[in-house]
Amino acid sequence: MEKLVIAGREFSSRLFLGTGKFNSNELMTQAIKASGTEMVTVAMKRIELGDKEDDMLQHIINPGIQLLPNTSGVRNAEEAVFAAQMAREAFGTNWLKLEIHPDPRYLLPDSTETLKATEQLVKMGFVVLPYCQADPTLCKHLEEAGAATVMPLGAPIGTNRGLQTRDFLRIIIEQAGVPVVVDAGIGAPSHAAEAMELGASACLVNTAIAVAGDPVAMARAFRQAVEAGRTAYEAGLGVQAESFVAEASSPLTSFLDE
């Protein structure tokens, strides 16, 4: 497998992991290990007074793992910029998963605010990985604004419905000058493998692993699926649609022999 390079950092693993929805930090830690991931997302929350809960960060801090703070919870570009500054301070990294969803029901990314925030954050020195609609034109705009990757959704977040946006992802992958990370909607290892076969640079998976019967085994399955899909892409997929034979008759090209 070719190494993935984002903003000058090399990644051997093309599976990014979200840390939400695990039953325990212990389980999360094991899943991270089993997945082989080198990039995990982390959210921020306001502290509660007298809160003595386990500090999740100590479970994932590891020199081999890039922390990717997200801006989950913000509703517009202004809030995203504030959240980004807080994240940079808290986690000591300028990497950022930019996600802006004003709609609390489907958590769909707001394209105009995401583009606006990307422009500002890039100028402020952030490495911006925006979660976005599977909109090829938007992705080009984000790229031009300086996004380090684009992260189009495969399906609405948490739905596990796979690559509903397949046709658009294909165009995005074809056109993109930055890595394309498929985020949201990947519900099974086969979905991740398909995204990689299409030529996606990486997949970001959370729910499908965190809520699996055995999250650690599922993390391993996704690791294998992402590797298999990427290797298949690099190997060049074989004939799928129809099998071509050299045609004996040549009604269209016989004029060339005249």
């Binding site: 294909r170 060049g236 997929l237 074989g238 004939v239 799928q240 649609a241 099998s243 071509f244």
Partner: peptide, 16 residues
């Protein structure tokens, strides 16, 4: 021959 068939079967071809 196999490379040609594979290319012709694809809807989206790359430079290879």
């Amino acid at each position: 021959d196999a490379d040609v068939r594979r290319a012709l079967a694809k809807e989206h071809c790359d430079v290879e």
